[in-house]
Design a protein around this nucleic acid. Structure first.
Lengths: 153, 153
DNA sequence: CTGCCACTTCAAGTCCAGTTGAGGTCAAGG
DNA sequence: CCTTGACCTCAACTGGACTTGAAGTGGCAG
């Protein structure tokens, strides 16, 4: 397969060129050469980017992800770390599921104020143990832009 | 119920005093007076903090959360926004579930390199459609400290 | 009455993951 | 040959959510 220049990688992966340069700087990906100034990448970089995206979704920092690639570039993954993260993910999933149900209920609930709705109060009580007590530093930055273009007001 | 000073609120909620001041500055909570310099809070602030934590877990920004409280301080919640967020949450949950399963498999898989494991490759392919193509701006910053250092009860 | 010390303010700093801007280069098309 | 424009570098900036540090204050135990 032919090498890809940065624009092609950006196009195929959806990852902006600025981010690709940033990732290279951080050692997350490597360009295989240049054509003029232009970086050239091995097509395998696309798989690598997928792995990076996966790692980010799992909650690893870029630094941790970088550490998961052996110097030869192949994923060298710490199984214990993976299992630990799977557990954390599982807890987050459970919290989020409860929350999703709570949101759905709140969206449909006819009580004048949510604070007067028993289901909502149940959610609050559950949250008080599960969430309040824990979060310190866990933003869960869900910037999942539902409408990527909408926000211009 | 007696009013709580900032240290009591911090103690009961697990939210650091600095964060409480920060939240007050942002209009997310309000102190009800002072004893000397010390802020005093209505005990209801604890419920409010739970609501805030909930909102953060759901992926709302502090600003969005602030907007969900009516000037009178009671939650005035936009049902459409809630439903939308529930959908987003649901998608995140689905993504994370697939990922959790993938992680569990990877942690147990005996293949020499994960890239050679068919299940892992399946996960990669799924991610390539679901994640790579989408993410732009959706970090999901799971700084879920697994061991929150167990603050006092 | 005095001193302690947990609180106060305000500004600045931190962290993560990028993005943006100014100024520069160079392969290719006309 | 010359222009074009997509790429290059490097530094600085962004945003969100806090945290930290210096300097000040005041309620309360002794």
């Amino acid at each position: 397969m032919k090498d890809l220049d940065i624009a092609e990688v950006a196009g195929r992966s959806g990852v902006p060129a600025s981010t690709l340069r940033f990732y290279e700087e951080k050692g997350l990906i490597a360009s295989i050469g240049r054509r003029g100034l232009r970086r050239l990448f091995d097509p395998g970089v696309l798989e690598r980017l997928t792995l990076i995206a996966l790692g980010r979704t799992a909650g690893f920092t870029l630094e941790e992800i970088a550490a998961m690639f052996a110097p030869d570039g192949r994923p060298r993954i710490d199984r214990k770390k993976l299992a630990t993260r799977a557990e954390a993910l599982d807890k987050t999933i459970r919290d989020m599921s409860a929350l999703r149900d709570g949101l759905r209920h709140a969206a449909a609930c006819p009580a004048p104020s949510h604070l007067e709705c028993p289901s909502f109060r149940r959610l609050l009580r559950a949250a008080a143990v599960g969430i309040i007590r824990a979060p310190r530093k866990m933003p869960t930055r869900q910037r999942l832009r539902i409408h990527p273009a909408a926000s211009r007001s």
